[in-house]
């Protein structure tokens, strides 16, 4: 545990501030919460990272919900499989 921690902090030190800011601002552009703001508004890296975590969690739960929904829909399509074929042909 302590070993891992020290490795991580040393790797954190290797990254330059410029690099960090470059990477974080790339993330910033993906976040709906922050993206809408004016570009001139500066946002702290900490805020961007917080929002990034929130956004990933939100996307994960969306995928979870959609998975449940799709599995239910699969049940309903199960009986006549030609529907599945129709959908597949639409997408191909």
């Amino acid at each position: 545990m302590s070993n891992r921690r020290s490795r991580q902090s040393s790797s954190a030190l290797r990254i330059s501030d410029d690099q960090m800011i470059d990477l974080v601002s790339k993330l910033r552009q993906l976040l709906p919460e922050i993206r809408e703001r004016r570009r001139s508004d500066k946002v702290s890296a900490s805020k961007v990272l917080q929002e990034t975590c929130n956004y990933i969690r939100k996307l994960h739960s969306e995928v979870d919900n959609l998975s449940d929904r799709l599995s239910q829909l699969l049940d309903s399509v199960d009986e006549d499989s030609h529907e599945a074929a129709v959908i597949r042909s639409l997408l191909m």
Partner: peptide, 22 residues
């Protein structure tokens, strides 16, 4: 790309790396 993130200072760095870990 336009840099639109506040420059890091020494104080905020630990908090930021903590968030990155999360």
């Amino acid at each position: 790309r336009r840099v639109s993130v506040v420059r890091l200072n020494k104080k905020s760095l630990p908090a930021v790396t903590g968030k990155v870990r999360v």
